[in-house]
Structure formats: C-alpha cells, structure tokens
Design a protein around this nucleic acid. Sequence first.
DNA 1: AAATCGGGGAT
DNA 2: ATCCCAGATTT
Length: 312
Amino acid sequence: MSSPLAELDDAHVQQVRTRILDWYAANARKLPWREPETTAWGVLVSEVMLQQTQVARVWEPWLAWMQRWPGPADLAAAEAADVLIMWGRLGYPRRALRLHETAKAVVEKHDGQLPADPELLLQLPGIGEYTAAAVSSFAFGIPEVVIDTNVRRVHARIFTGVGAAAPSLTAAERQLARKLMPDTSTEQGVADANTWNVATMELGALICTARAPKCEECPVLAQCAWVAAGKPEPDVVAKTQSWNGSDRQVRGAIMGVLRAQGTVDVGRLRTTVEATGRLGRHIPESAQWDRAVTGLVDDGLAVLSEDVLTLP
DNA sequence: AAATCGGGGAT
DNA sequence: ATCCCAGATTT
C-alpha cells in the first residue's frame, strides 16, 4: 500500500481538524492541571505523573504534590525519601527521582525557571520527546508536534486506516503528525495548533479508545479510514510480561514497605514484605530478592548500609 | 529494536 | 485474566 501521506487530501485534513477542534471545545474534560492558573512547572509535574499512569489516578496526587511543592525550588529542597513517599503508588518511582533531579537542574542551570525550549527540556532527566513537546505546547504555547499513544492511535485510524499504531513510533508517523498540524503562520494558527495537540489526545482518551472505541459518538466517524475499511482488527500485539511473580512486583512490594516504615533490616526483608500481602501467593527465590534489592539500590531508590535497607 | 520499569482501572 | 495507560531510559 502506498504511503498514507500520498493520499493526504487538504480538504479532508481541514475537515478533520475543524471537527475535532469543535468537538474538543464542547467536550474537553476539566482537569486540575488544565486550569489557567497552573504554572509551567505544574504542567510538567502532571506530564511526568501521567507517563503510563491514567488521569484518574494522577488527579489527587497531583493536587497534593503541588500544594506541598508548588515550584521547582520547593521540590529541589526536599529530601529524596519524602519525594518517594509523596509519589506513593503512582508507579515507576524512578520518575519521582528524575523529577526531583529535574527540579534541582532547573534551580541550578535555569535560574529556577523551567525552560520553554523543547531542546532544553529534553536535556532534563525524565523528559523525553513526548513530554518536552507537550510542556512546550501546553505550558508555553509553542506549537510543537505532540505525539503520545492517543495521538498515534487516532492518526492511525483516521488517516492510515488501521486499528492500532505500530509498536514504536516511526518516522512516517512523525511526518504524518507534522503535516496534520494547523498552519502556524498566524497567531490564530498557533493557538489552533496547540489546541489540536490536546484535542487529538482527548479524542483518543475519550472516544477513539484502544479497547472499545465509541465510534457512534465520534466527530470524524465519516472521515475515518479505519471505519471506511470496516474496522479491521489490529494485528495481535505481543503479550505483556505477566505481573504476578515478576521482579517489578517484588520491587514494588519492597518500595511499599520502605514508603511505610522508611527502613527495613535485610534479615527481616523477606518476612516483612511477604506480610504485606502485596506479593499474593508468590514466594520469590533468594536470587529474586537479591535482584530486586540490587536493582533498587542501583536505581537510587534505596540505600543498603550495615544490612539495613532505607529510602535514599 | 527490545527489555525494563509499577500499579490499578477497565473490560 | 488480560489489556492498556498523556513514556523514558538502557541494552
């Protein structure tokens, strides 16, 4: 099949843009980090928390976090242990450490002001291509091309006619996303481009969902190549690693104990962690305990000293 | 390109 | 039970 870019028809693209922008104007969720008084730093904190964690689970932790540490200088001055405790059960606690490091870097290298330039944002720990573009666009009004999992799926369906995007972001997807951005040569165009970013994500989150898309409510149902093709099933994706018995489950259970009591004697680690019930029926071998502890220490999430494991 | 890294809501 | 989630980083 020929490249989807070859088939891109300006009138079609215009219609899709208008319909999605109109849909967003009427259907955008009211999320706390979208309130006009939210600072750029607040937007960054939300984006990091939202990396692989759903909106519903981020909502309250974000509010509590911003109340405790409103700006980068506040977070930079915090103890890593408190940062990890505050991160709570959001998952992937390395994100919390990297955000802490980013706060320090903003204070030390950027005079306490989060940079707006995506190239500078990219150099900060825990900020990758998506987050840099998202912060530039949402917090600073710079019309970067924002591509997250929602955007990829929406583009794949409407313009490529497939049910799901490829496993990892391709050059063709970047090219398509760039071509779909509203023209930014006018002030209105810049505003539209920034709204287009968030609107496409919102459509993917609320209507064009991965599992059971609500096509009957979709503003671009009539423009969708996937629908036109009869909604062919996506290729089966590789099965995700099972959670029960995984190293991640063990690491998570250990972190749970450390967040709750700050420290644990390694001789009691096994009993203490198993008593939390967070491992279910899984009884790790000693090699897995070793891997988990070593991994947490290597990642800076825990410190081992005198046979005692503690938060950093 | 593939593996690793949490945790829970949704189906 | 399995899928999926406003990804980033390392191998």
